[in-house]
Design a protein around this nucleic acid. Structure first.
Lengths: 221, 221
DNA sequence: CGACAGGTTGATCCCGATCAAGTTTAGTGG
DNA sequence: CCACTAAACTTGATCGGGATCAACCTGTCG
């Protein structure tokens, strides 16, 4: 756990990096694609920002810490999403894989040189900024039950209607994403179950039963 | 009030637009710069997204509404910041001037054509995304007093140390930005005053007295 | 089996929302 | 200039949703 298991460039296996804040991903600037295990911290908030990254496959969680240890998960990323953003050449967030993931990395200097990359990132940044705006509404104005309903709808695309959603996050991670405590998240799940809006096959497997009621709760996502 | 007072291209005065949701800014695609009065709604959440805008001068507030009327101010913009972002060709937020403002507009199609504009927007989007990440931490994990301290530090650049900050927002607008109620914001201001961290010359004129304590409260901005 | 990480549920507490007066400020017209 | 008004702000009293504290449960893996 907490270990980079493979790197495509040359196929070499890099040493564990989860526990060493400054050792992550200082590879050569032409190592674009990496395969990373679940629950690996890829970037650390505060480290010098050398690279910008794209999720090719899998899920990544960005989080920020307060000095006293309070944590906020600020963004959940899937394929296509970009991370490794910086203020003053310092990473603004930590990034941790939620599932095994494939990640594409670019040297920050490539941004100026490669207009195709720039155009792709521009579109993606716009989308992610819109998602952050929605998330501000969730964090600032929604009740606990509404937040959890919103969270589940967001993870469950329109397409997969009858399917079962596998949550690859613990209650604590969901709580840190939604600005709640793990107990409140657990109670919200139980309440949604009690009302018949969702079915919990297991703690981490959810099926949305009544999408209409969920949408109404989430304020029409 | 709530009226566009000037448009540089040709110097024509456009009709009031504040109250008509669909009448704003459908000018020719080569009308780049506009002068706008304070408290004018420039964009409406949900309108078709034709243009992308840059703040040249002044302050703009982006907000989102829930169906039941709860509001979240999702971003505060100053010179250089960009707005008019869209999901599915629909504006994701309403935009309202807080002060008289100068705004530069571009046709969305110009994004693909103009690489210089694209590069500028890319840099700006990255900065705004980082700010949104911080704001998620504020909304998700900070107490009322911490939020208000953070807000004041954010508005008061390092440079202006002894100066007086003019808030161009009401308590309600600040509350909607910080995910609080106007009463709680008012109490937080009073508490900061009581503790000697700020001086309130008037309700909308603040001087930060003890920046160190403010930083500690805000979790080291 | 035992250990432990993650999850659920209950009891209580507290911060911020809500409800309710008052107070200040800015604007308007006589 | 002052009286009147309305909007914004402050402050107090009370309430409630979610945090906190505390057991207990469940599943997984050695």
């Amino acid at each position: 756990m907490r270990q980079i298991i493979d790197e495509r460039t040359g196929g070499t296996v890099r040493p564990p990096c989860g526990a060493e804040p400054h050792s992550a991903l200082h590879g050569p600037s032409h190592a674009p694609t990496m395969r990373i295990a679940a629950h690996v911290t890829v970037l650390h908030e505060g480290d010098p920002a050398r690279r910008i990254m794209e999720v090719v496959d899998g899920a990544v969680m960005l989080s920020k810490l307060l000095p006293d240890g309070r944590r906020q998960v600020v963004e959940l990323l899937g394929p296509g999403d970009v991370f490794g953003l910086a203020h003053a050449d310092i990473y603004a967030c930590s990034a941790e894989t939620l599932t095994p993931a494939t990640i594409n990395t670019h040297d920050r200097s490539a941004l100026e040189r490669d207009p195709v990359l720039g155009a792709r990132l521009l579109r993606r940044f716009e989308a992610q900024l819109c998602v952050m705006h929605s998330h501000a509404l969730v964090l600032g104005r929604m009740s606990a039950l509404e937040r959890v309903a919103f969270f589940l709808l967001r993870l469950m695309p329109e397409t997969m209607v009858g399917g079962t959603l596998h949550l690859s996050m613990t209650r604590q991670e969901i709580a840190d994403f939604l600005g709640l405590t793990l107990e409140t998240v657990s109670r919200a799940f139980s309440e949604l179950k009690r009302r018949g809006l969702v079915v919990l096959q297991r703690a981490d497997e959810v099926r949305i039963q009544d999408r209409g009621s969920m949408r109404r709760l989430a304020g029409a996502l």
